[in-house]
Design a protein around this nucleic acid. Sequence first.
DNA 1: TCTTGGCACTCAGGGCGAACGAGTGCCAGA
DNA 2: TCTGGCACTCGTTCGCCCTGAGTGCCAAGA
Lengths: 340, 340
Amino acid sequence: MVDDRKLDVLRAIVEDYVATEEPVGSKALVERHGLGVSPATVRNDMAALEDEGYIHQPHTSAGRVPTDKGYRLFVDKLATLKPMSAAERRAIATLLDSAVDLDDVVQRSVRLLSQLTRQVAIVQYPTLSRSTVRHIELVSLTPTRVMVILILSTGRVEQRLVELEAPVVEADLAELRVAVNQASAGVQIAAAAAALADVPDGVRPEQADSAHAIVGVLTDAMSDHRSDERVAVGGTANLARYGDFDTAVRPLLEALEEHVVLLKLLGESGTDALTVRIGHEGPYSELAATSVVATGYGPQEFHLGSLGVVGPTRMDYPGSMAAVRAVARYVSRILDEGNQ
Amino acid sequence: MVDDRKLDVLRAIVEDYVATEEPVGSKALVERHGLGVSPATVRNDMAALEDEGYIHQPHTSAGRVPTDKGYRLFVDKLATLKPMSAAERRAIATLLDSAVDLDDVVQRSVRLLSQLTRQVAIVQYPTLSRSTVRHIELVSLTPTRVMVILILSTGRVEQRLVELEAPVVEADLAELRVAVNQASAGVQIAAAAAALADVPDGVRPEQADSAHAIVGVLTDAMSDHRSDERVAVGGTANLARYGDFDTAVRPLLEALEEHVVLLKLLGESGTDALTVRIGHEGPYSELAATSVVATGYGPQEFHLGSLGVVGPTRMDYPGSMAAVRAVARYVSRILDEGNQ
DNA sequence: TCTTGGCACTCAGGGCGAACGAGTGCCAGA
DNA sequence: TCTGGCACTCGTTCGCCCTGAGTGCCAAGA
């Protein structure tokens, strides 16, 4: 049975351990938190908590350390998000508001998150797939060379160069421009390829080849999920504070190089809820010593991407959760504004 | 006096130390390299080299370790670039050739460099300042909202959103488009702002305000050296192989977060020569334990940016230098092709 | 004059054992 | 049900010695 006082003890253990990075004993616990009972009582509670698997003793003569299960209980039942200070809120607002474009928003968010949490921060670039086509621009560079520019509702711009078989004049290009824009403007990118497929049939026969080529690269750019896999990483220097290098730092550094791994860590579930994945709960056994606090972002339940922080299981969950949520909200709001 | 045999000894010490990461003694030296003399002789040479400051003894009963000065001599006089293997050349060529755009080239280069050298790789994005304006595109999103797209000769695309005071119709926009392109196409970006300044005076009076706004953001985008500071970093996981964490890894991880620092490390000197900066020779005292092998790149002496690797002073200089040079050449060639 | 074998010397690192002390589990009494 | 007391455990630290790699120097040889 886990009664209220045992929960208090668990909370105290987690907080102390996160702060000191050392196993915490019964005596230190009653001293540092006003638990109102004696160390002996706490010891009994600790024994019970250990039986239930919430805490663990590295060796007989040491204090207790929370297990993953213990952290889980802490996060689910005991943690209240630390409210951001006014100064922090202001910092978030001003820093993100002064971003000049999408890339800048992402990069500032990463920096912000890593500074707020003193952890490694990860921000996924908004995915293409949910966004809509805002405009397609065709720019003739030479008579047979056209720069195709795809502007999406999220503010992302994709560019491709096309070599045409036959030269086109500006008037032809204007026709094609109208055609592709009519076909795809406002269409979700997932559906846009299909919408564009008919374009070559609808133009004058002598333009069909050019249209084909242009629609080809557009389809290519839209289905190119390379940009879906883009993530920004920051705050790796915070890894330096980690204790043991081989089990914690190295695997994480390796994971940070692999963007696919990162995306899986963030959880591409598509949900916008704030999720915490603790140690072994994650998909990678090498990362059993690290936790992830992540959430989706995007205006009004419209999931555009995820962001979060990665750190040791022994991390400040309430603080990280609050920071992640706050940054996600601001990012969502900004993307929404840019979209009006 | 440093005669030929002493140089041989120094070379052998550097090579062994790089390979084993341990101070190298006289006996092991004659065994592993066919020096043709006895350990005692080597000891005498070592003593001389130590007097000259090329090598150093961590403690009395240990072998010798090269000093920064020793590495310098090694790099200047003794190192011959390790030729890339055919397989490596092919890997470089195919990987970089299949890049779809500028960002992709940079990202692939980083990955390539870090894999070839097993070091941390840094690649600066091509700077704006030396490139020329290829095309400016104006896209009307709403009557008072225009997306301004700046296409540069390096393939870089910059985008800005402008809010106009008064609505413009497509015909107005077309006029403005012609005006700005006539003024700036082919002009070096450093001079383009001046060239654009007159545009608002040359258009019909009722368009002057819009022209002003558009030229404003263009000038802003061109003078915005934020993108000059963009660098890509890869291979940080290789830091895990470093021995001592506090003096080597932590300062470097911190430096890698600061792009300005990275650029200084790469040496923005503008020279395209392959440079090696060893330990304390660099600008940051915290990075006294790290060396940088860097070079500029760009088609035909036309400096667009720098790339290189960062690692411990105890690194494989010949291998790193060869890899850095090879990648820089390929990148230069590709940027040149895209520019024809 | 340079090279070589011999030899005494130095000193970091590893292994060992004792003392230490933080922390526990358990028990009897309030 | 809580508390104080007490014996017990065991990882950590410290001092010690020993080992061995590596050196510097010297005298003899080429």
